[in-house]
Amino acid sequence: MGTEERVALVTGANRGIGLEVTRRLAERGWTVLLGARSAAKGARAAAGLAPARVEVLELDVADDAAAANAGNVVLERHGRQSRFRAPRPPAEWCSMADAPAG
Rank of each mutant, 00 (worst) to 15 (best):
L59T: 10
R77D: 06
A46F: 02
F84Q: 05
L57H: 04
V7R: 02
D98P: 08
A86G: 15
E76L: 12
T22K: 03
A65P: 00
V32P: 00
L75H: 14
E58D: 13
L9K: 03
P87G: 02
P100I: 07
A70H: 01
V32G: 00
G12S: 04
A13H: 04
T22W: 05
V7C: 02
S95H: 12
P89G: 06
L49M: 08
E27V: 07
W93R: 02
N69Q: 14
G18D: 03
W30A: 04
E76D: 14
E5W: 08
E20M: 06
L75I: 11
P90D: 13
A66S: 11
D98Q: 15
A26C: 04
R15Y: 11
G71D: 03
R15H: 14
A46M: 07
V61Q: 08
L59R: 02
D64C: 06
N72T: 15
E4D: 14
M96K: 11
A39V: 10
R23V: 00
L57S: 06
V74H: 01
A62L: 09
R83I: 15
M96E: 13
P90H: 10
G12Q: 01
L34R: 04
A65M: 05
E4K: 14
A47E: 15
N14W: 07
V73M: 01
A50H: 13
A62C: 09
A43T: 15
W30G: 04
A8W: 06
A13R: 00
A45I: 04
T11P: 06
G42T: 04
V10Q: 03
G29T: 00
S38W: 06
I17L: 14
P100Q: 05
E5R: 13
N72M: 15
G16W: 04
P90S: 14
E27T: 08
D64V: 11
M1L: 12
A52M: 08
S82E: 07
G2D: 09
R37Y: 03
G48K: 10
E4P: 00
A99S: 14
K41D: 09
V21Q: 02
L75P: 05
A43M: 07
Q81L: 15
L49Y: 00
A97Y: 06
A97R: 12
E58G: 09
A40W: 07
V32N: 01
R23W: 01
A50C: 14
R28I: 05
D60I: 05
A97F: 11
R83D: 09
L34W: 06
K41W: 03
